[in-house]
Design a protein around this nucleic acid. Structure first.
Lengths: 140, 140
DNA sequence: GCCGCTCATGCGACACTGTCGCATCAAGCT
DNA sequence: AGCTTGATGCGACAGTGTCGCATGAGCGGC
């Protein structure tokens, strides 16, 4: 199950003229194993648990490559540090500025806003990159 | 005009037990003179043009103080670097991921979204901190 | 199964943004 | 004018991400 996802992603890399190395395989495995919202440094640690020789910069470069393929997406939940997740789990983020809780919200909640903005400003929102800040149920 | 705004802000600082120094005065002047969306480093340069001895860290600390007073607000338009603007020019930002153009949008465009999110997720959006990414009219 | 081309890697150095501790200074109250 | 206390300048540091370079390894072709 996860294996086929793994192979599909690695196949995508190969199909684009990229190469599948042990570092990349380990990184994708870490991505699949992790729940959403892992930082690059986080992933580096997980990968290094298995392959200690893998360098930070390799993680960043591989994540870039995967993002170029549309396999992963990164977003910013707060100050400093982006977080990565697989692109097929696309969603928006609400972050509580008080307790830091992250609420995931399906894209379609933003559809009306997207329509309004497109109509009024001829601007096409590509949501998901930045979180919306606010207060969660407990903190407000 | 701008002078009264300057004095009002400096007065606020004093009223909260803060002190009005030449560095602070210069920083607020720079803020008032600048059009919106200046970075901290940007402000540092502008201030140092008049008072070269003012240190980077003073700029950050003063901006923090002003933000605590509700005088300024900072937001993130993209990767790296926040931008500051006066709080009375509150608005949302749409940033074109292609050309970097920034479109300012009044808060009330977000009101329906805020209602939906509050109703469905009991989450109160405090918008403005992060920009919405997308494509502007020219680039789409 | 080997070769060679080219991409990926490890490494260190660097850039950028922001924070902190500390000794010193000066704003503003009295 | 003096004193208290907040602000400053300075340098060091942390976190995040990028880059150049020499080396190593994947994979397509034979």
């Amino acid at each position: 199950m996860t294996d086929t996802r793994l192979e599909r992603i690695l196949g995508l890399l190969r199909a684009e003229g990229g190469r599948v190395t042990s570092a990349r395989r380990a990184l994708v495995e870490a991505l699949l194993a992790a729940d959403a919202h892992v930082t690059a440094e986080d992933l580096a640690v997980r990968v290094q648990a298995v392959h200690p020789e893998v360098h930070r910069s390799t993680v960043y470069r591989t994540l870039d490559a995967l993002e170029g393929l549309g396999v992963v997406v990164h977003s910013h939940l707060g100050h400093g540090g982006g977080v990565y997740h697989l692109a097929d789990e696309r969603h928006q983020h609400l972050v509580c500025e008080q307790c830091g809780a992250v609420v995931e919200v399906p894209d379609d909640v933003f559809a009306p806003l997207a329509r309004t903005v497109r109509r009024r400003y001829r601007f096409t929102i590509e949501p998901g990159h930045f979180a919306l800040v606010g207060r969660c149920a407990e903190c407000s």
